[in-house]
Nucleic acid binder design. Structure first.
Lengths: 199, 199
DNA sequence: GAGCCGATTGACTGGTCAATCAACCGGAGG
DNA sequence: CCTCCGGTTGATTGACCAGTCAATCGGCTC
């Protein structure tokens, strides 16, 4: 027998938290729910995290830093702005495909809950908008996009559309089962970018 | 002296709730906060509403029915789909201009919080998406929009962009002071509709 | 002016939970 | 065999707050 992995309890708790938050929502989950789901004693949660909030924080920061990296990565590609935006949308949709529960938590409890938790992370969230805005701005400078749309404005609209589609899948407003995420990505990017075509 | 108006306490409480919800968020406001803000005794809130939730419900339903009416109204116009979508976006932006606190509450606490409250109102929210989708669908049937985009898909993207812009103003990510809302509306509609132009 | 009734008041209760903490366990090292 | 120590346990505490309810108010009717 290979030695059992050291059973990283911290990770165990984080993963359990994702499941419970996704199922019940952050406010409705008690710390004891997380502990139960993780098969761990109540107090251990407080050994690894200073508060219930910090658990959510950790989940968000982990995931969001990946998104920021993906945006930067996309931007440093030498493709056109359409390809770059496609990579960004693709990364987000893939994240959902890969771990819908985590994405649900991030979107519902942090990104779209800008009042409670988002407030804390407004700066990081804004950084994503700005990264997308940069892609748009460069696209305008290179003549690929028309210049009369403020890049930040376009960025917000683009990201808003992405997030709304995600929400639609998350809450069943839009059927997700037979939807091809890649097709959704292409459709969205095509539509938005055609709207940004030079007049 | 003219007799003082009957001081509709119910209305007083609703208006106070908007202010407090906007300031502190729904979860963080105690019922006593609402009562204090309204200058009314704690128990009176429960005389007019069965719970704290019902106060928020009432605010949402009041406002959302206006939006649904506006969408229908726009659709029954004999303008083109661009004009119709412009009217919808215009109505929403105007609502924000006219009463930013109320719109903040509706968006942040209900629409985007689909997990807690939105769940209850998913049906009404979806009706708005469908109204917009109908406008898009008719536009396609009339040849004004290209036909290879699912109307519901386009509707979600459109509404998502609108809501994200609103959120940007609400949370100061986008400067609202010098932004001309009408210009934002035109820019958004133009961009999205150009993206929906027949290929 | 007596009686009625809905509006209004605010002290109180019951339950919920986040966070604390003292105790316990088991392995490493001497 | 003993001690130390970090990981682990879960009962307990203390704060908070939604919702209740018995009491009071004030206007209207007869």
């Amino acid at each position: 027998m290979a030695q059992a992995p050291p059973a990283d309890k911290r990770r165990l708790i984080l993963d359990a938290a994702v499941r419970v938050f996704a199922r019940q929502g952050f406010h409705a989950t008690r710390v004891s729910d997380i502990a139960d789901e993780a098969g761990v004693a109540y107090g251990l949660v407080y050994h690894y995290f200073s508060s219930k909030d910090e658990v959510l924080n950790e989940l968000f920061v982990e995931r969001w830093s990946l998104l920021l990296a993906a945006i930067e990565e996309a931007d440093s590609t030498d493709g056109g702005p359409r390809e770059k935006l496609g990579m960004v949308a693709g990364f987000i949709f893939d994240s959902y495909r890969h771990d819908p529960e985590l994405m649900k938590v991030i979107i519902v409890e942090v990104t779209r809950a800008a009042n409670s938790f988002g407030q804390t992370h407004l700066e990081e969230i804004r950084r994503a908008y700005e990264g997308i805005a940069k892609i748009v701005g460069d696209g305008q400078a290179g003549g690929a996009f028309r210049g009369d749309v403020d890049p930040m404005f376009a960025s917000m609209a683009f990201y808003g559309a992405v997030e709304q589609l995600l929400s639609g899948w998350i809450f069943g407003t839009i059927p997700a089962s037979d939807t091809d995420f890649d097709q959704a990505r292409d459709l969205l990017v095509t539509t938005i970018c055609d709207g940004l075509d030079p007049r």
